[in-house]
């Protein structure tokens, strides 16, 4: 399985992601430029964390107009897996690929710590390696990770089991403790916690591996487009 990791000016978790994919999971992974216009040949796209375009205007608001995002939209529309971590999640909401928005943390502080999550839905291609309702430990590092959506959207998310991860101890004020959501089609996931920072014991947790392992297991039959 071959992964593309788009790099925007200001991305800073791109190498962490590629290291997790290549060195730990033994997958093919390429860093691709934000100016890339095609993602042909890739089986999955992961938008990494960071501060794309300096978070000017709003987190993810400018990255959304990078040429690669046109390709990411087409990739997602074709039903292929797309994941956004942290700033990647913010970009996916700004691009309209996921509902809702990420606003400033309730405490107005940047939060960098390990957070405990519940795998709310393990019937997805991003979470099938976890037991239902499993508790996992993943690091968070964000100033604007407070997930917001209106009541109508929340009802839709709940009805379609789109809430994949929830915080146990809501650190940032997110609506309904939401840490990660997917689209209705089930092929686009966004989450604030960083699974790529929890893939080796020396990092303090290996609980992030399950997300990648789920994705790899679900897509192993896929041949390159």
């Amino acid at each position: 399985m071959k992964f593309a990791v788009p790099v925007f000016p200001g991305s800073n978790c791109d190498y962490d992601m590629v290291n997790a994919l290549r060195d730990i999971l033994k997958m093919e992974a390429d860093l691709v430029s934000a100016d890339t216009t095609t993602l042909t040949g890739y089986d999955a796209v992961i938008l990494p964390g960071g501060f794309s375009y300096g978070d000017y205007l709003r987190s993810g608001a400018i990255a959304r107009f990078a040429p690669v995002m046109t390709a990411v939209k087409a990739f997602a529309a074709a039903g292929k897996p797309v994941m956004g971590i942290c700033n990647g999640f913010q970009i996916l909401t700004e691009a309209g690929l996921l509902p809702g928005a990420l606003q400033a943390n309730r405490s107005s502080k940047f939060i960098c710590k390990t957070s405990e999550l519940i795998v709310k839905n393990n019937q997805t291609q991003f979470s099938s390696a976890y037991a239902s309702q499993a508790h996992i430990q993943l690091p968070i590092a964000h100033g604007e990770g407070n997930y917001y959506c209106d009541d109508e959207t929340l009802t839709t998310l709940q009805e379609h089991q789109q809430i994949v991860f929830e915080y146990v101890d809501n650190p940032n004020g997110s609506t309904a403790n939401i840490a990660g959501v997917m689209n209705q089609a089930g092929n686009v996931l966004g989450m604030m916690p960083h699974p790529e920072r929890a893939v080796e014991a020396i990092l303090g947790s290996t609980d992030g591996l399950g997300i990648f392992q789920s994705l790899i297991a679900a897509n192993k039959e896929v041949t390159h487009a």
Partner: peptide
């Protein structure tokens, strides 16, 4: 109106 404004509160 429904959105928290932590920066405004600060």
């Amino acid at each position: 109106q429904s959105i928290l404004d932590p920066k405004g509160e600060a």
